[in-house]
């Protein structure tokens, strides 16, 4: 079972964000999508769980064409997919514990005791054991991100989508999040798609990296292949050297 995007196009008014985006993520794999701001990375993730509908193309998750599913089937699919939002998107009227429990309450057959057990387990995995009773406004940026991560992993998902999971975090927390992403794959065989600007993090966690440029995948390869890419656009981005791009132009 995998995630597969086939020739996905998405525009917002006159702005064409995705223009034939094609990518597959195999079972148990971690694929990272890198690319400049505004290149459609977050749009890609929202398309995968049906928050946005593509104008053209198909998105397949777990053997199902996402945009052909009825509402109930779509919700059933979403229970298998954890989504870590860029700015955590915690429900600010709820405590951290209630936030983490939200998704679990939509899972059939779980008792309140089981929900609380899984909430505490998820919080301990992200080192937030003592923060369950706090509200999001009482958390630091890094803690919010970890709480968002706890909410996603509490579902024991088969797929995890990370939108900029390490942006704005201190180096220690970045390492912790990277290890957590790897652990989710190694221990639970979770298939992961990560959107990031953090090239070092991408090199550490990825089985493959895809470079997104102007709504299309410019290049896909292992971290070593991307590091030694001959594409000036890829090298300009991963090395942070815009002059390479200017040479190209």
């Amino acid at each position: 079972m995998s995630i597969e995007l086939k020739g996905v196009h998405k525009a917002f008014g006159a702005s064409k964000v995705l223009q034939g985006f094609t990518l597959d993520v195999q079972e148990g794999e971690i694929v990272t999508v890198i690319g400049p701001s505004g290149s459609g990375k977050s749009t890609t993730l929202k398309t995968i769980i049906g928050l946005l509908e593509p104008d053209e193309g198909e998105v397949w998750v777990d053997g199902e064409n996402v945009h052909q599913l009825g509402l109930d089937a779509l919700y059933a699919l979403r229970r298998k997919v954890g989504y870590v939002f860029q700015f955590a998107a915690l429900f600010d009227s709820m405590t951290v514990r209630e936030n983490v429990a939200m998704g679990l309450r939509r899972m059939p057959g779980l008792s309140e005791a089981e929900i609380q057990e899984r909430v505490e387990d998820a919080l301990s995995r992200v080192d937030l054991e003592g923060s369950g009773a706090r509200f999001p406004a009482q958390l630091s940026g890094g803690m919010k991100k970890r709480a968002g991560l706890a909410r996603a992993i509490a579902l024991n998902p088969r797929y995890l989508l990370y939108d900029e999971p390490t942006t704005g975090l201190d180096p220690l927390t970045v390492t912790m999040v990277d290890r957590l992403i790897l652990r989710m794959r190694d221990e639970l065989q979770v298939t992961s798609l990560v959107i990031t600007h953090d090239i070092e993090s991408a090199y550490r966690i990825s089985d493959r990296i895809a470079m997104l440029f102007e709504g299309q995948v410019l290049e896909v390869g292992t971290p070593e292949e991307i590091r030694s890419s001959e594409s000036s656009r890829v090298r300009a981005f991963v090395e942070g050297k815009p002059e390479l791009l200017e040479d190209h132009q």
């Binding site: 979403r78 229970r79 939002f85 860029q86 700015f87 998107a89 939200m102 998704g103 939509r106």
Partner: peptide, 13 residues
């Protein structure tokens, strides 16, 4: 703040 997207991602209408 994407909280509505988060609700949808957690299978809430």
């Amino acid at each position: 703040t994407e909280q509505i997207d988060a609700l949808e991602s957690l299978a809430y209408d």
